[in-house]
Nucleic acid binder design. Structure first.
Lengths: 339, 339
DNA sequence: CTAAAAACTGAGAGCGCTCCCATTAATTAT
DNA sequence: ATAATTAATGGGAGCGCTCTCAGTTTTTAG
């Protein structure tokens, strides 16, 4: 099975290259009978157009890049990213795009990946996971290269880029409000890294809510985590001496770790200390105690990011837009709502 | 910053297109002085060669595909795959390849992805995760398309393809031997799906070892799981009535679930029932009881797969080869080795 | 039945690069 | 110094497609 070209098919079907091209691309202005004949030849020969040639001629690669700039550990420890990736891959497939994955972990990675991502003829657009330290540079780089771009998560400087996010502040607020409503008095929090916008925003939601309800905000009840299970565990150990009766944890993964620490300290959940997490990934229901958590639509987040990007690519839309998806508090056992 | 071409650079540097091409590709036969001048122009203009044009002319895309054919749930529930992906992405980056990710979940996905993967001009080669139901079709398809191919994991029919794997049978055997050595009498197992080669091989290792040691193999002590936490949990519940004093679980994720079931049944680990897992992913050490497990070098597995593939691509090697990586039993608390 | 409009088809000029080959310049040997 | 090598350059012919435009056929209108 030697490599076939448009020309070969044309010859076999007794038409011109142009006509075959029209058929392949499903363009109008081809007589039904001719179209059938060409289709038949394509079918018989198993012809597939050459992607590179098509990209070169049309200046469209039908490939989008997913750029995940992350510190090694956070990345594959938190199932959030695999889920996001899945949503994105799913949408790419649906819209007939190919997904190129770029995991940036080290500075060397950066140096190799940056030029590749902005190189013409490879990608039609890029989705960048943002809100992390150093995303500014990447985003600026991509804008300079005139790349279609959608940022997943709120970047630190959000002017001039399209991004998609959830309302982290209010989502966190809903979780904390719920704990207040249940009558907890000493509500602590384990935040995400405060060099990330998610970390910052969820923490802000926590503080804002306490203030609005006339509660005092105790520094000792706020501990920073790193979105890992182990981070949640250690953060909880720091929190323990200050005897919180409820903790809002900024991710499910950290919540699992925090609950482990509480259990090891002989505390009963939610009797002695209640927990609310964030994400509602499968792990939330896999612990001994089902986790009350803020559900964010991760898959849909990925899908929407792709749709936004494709819109930009195909319609040449350049005005930055932002999409904020809804979250929902899912009440299970760990918050003690039943008492 | 309009799109620059080789020709533009050539003009600015006062040389020909060919010379610039030589410089860009780091070819010999360019006078040092000229090379510097060209490099300077490239630097100043921020020129990057067009990927599609290069691919078309050289018939090499410097892109490899990772094809993950999996049922939705297993995939992102088990951190194994993200880790594998990471290893592969890392190696791609190191060798200056771009990684295209294809997640196949449904039959529709398949229909869209298959032609795209085998289309000329997009990928130089493909890594397929195998050992799952239906991989035969994909592999056959790829071979027909004359694609460079490396299979990750042992495929059901392994003749004529290069693959990389670990020795699952003996790895499982080492785990079970360890339990026998510790004096356990009723050793059960939670297997992977028996329509997968990993599931089959690890189960075989379990059975083989019991037989070799003159132990009886009880069907009721063998339960099939699905590589998910929940699957491990339910499998353990089925095992419980038959009172195993030790269980070899075919993945860490399932082991976590199994231990949860044991704990809920009021059993002490490892006092009442001991566990050995498989994988040694981070979760193994995140449980209350540190998991004894068979370590497999997941990252290295991914790296090696890429290296094999690149070797095939760049050296035109076509003789199928197989690489088997070593595993190692990591002894922690859950097997009760300390007693 | 002819003229105007619409539908269809094919030729040609790129897209931006690589790679072979012919040419010219710089070395080395005679 | 000149001839024979070797190194350095430029030109040209593709890679396999898309897309415009001109030419041809068919349809519809007058």
């Amino acid at each position: 099975m030697t490599d076939l070209t448009l020309e070969d098919i044309a010859k076999q079907a007794g038409v011109s290259r142009s006509t075959v091209s029209r058929v392949v691309n499903n363009y109008p202005n081809v007589r039904g009978e001719v179209r059938q004949r060409v289709l038949q030849v394509i079918e018989n020969t198993g012809y597939h157009p050459n992607a590179a040639a098509r990209t070169l001629a049309s200046q469209r690669s039908w490939t989008i890049g997913l750029l995940l700039p992350l510190s090694v550990s956070i990345f594959f420890t938190d199932p959030y990213y695999p889920h996001l990736t899945k949503g994105i891959a799913q949408a790419c497939n649906q819209y007939n795009y190919t997904l190129a994955l770029f995991l940036v972990e080290t500075r060397e990675d950066e140096e190799k990946i940056f030029p590749r991502v902005s190189r013409k003829g490879l990608l039609d657009g890029v989705i960048v996971q943002a809100g992390h330290h150093g995303d500014q540079q990447i985003i600026g780089h991509l804008i300079d290269a005139n790349m279609s771009l959608v940022v997943a998560g709120r970047p630190f400087r959000s002017d001039n880029v399209s991004y998609i996010d959830i309302d982290n502040v209010n989502a966190a607020a809903s979780a904390v409000s719920h704990l207040i409503r249940l009558g907890y008095q000493r509500i602590g929090t384990i935040t995400g890294p405060t060099n990330s916008t998610v970390g910052l925003d969820r923490k802000e939601g926590y503080i804002k809510t306490l203030r609005e309800r006339g509660r005092s905000v105790e520094d000792s009840l706020i501990v920073e985590g790193d979105f890992t299970e182990a981070g949640g565990y250690y953060a909880m150990q720091k929190l323990l001496p200050f005897k919180p009766d409820a903790v809002f944890v900024a991710s499910d993964t950290m919540a699992i770790g925090a609950m482990r620490a509480a259990r090891e300290a002989g505390l009963n959940i939610p009797g002695d200390v209640a927990f609310v997490g964030f994400d509602d990934l499968p792990i939330a229901t896999l612990s001994n105690i089902q986790l009350t958590t803020v559900r964010q639509p991760v898959i849909q987040f990925g899908v929407k990011a792709v749709e936004l990007l494709i819109d930009q690519i195909e319609n040449g839309i350049t005005t930055p837009c932002r999409v904020i998806l809804d979250t929902e508090l899912v009440i299970r056992q760990s918050c003690g709502a039943t008492r």
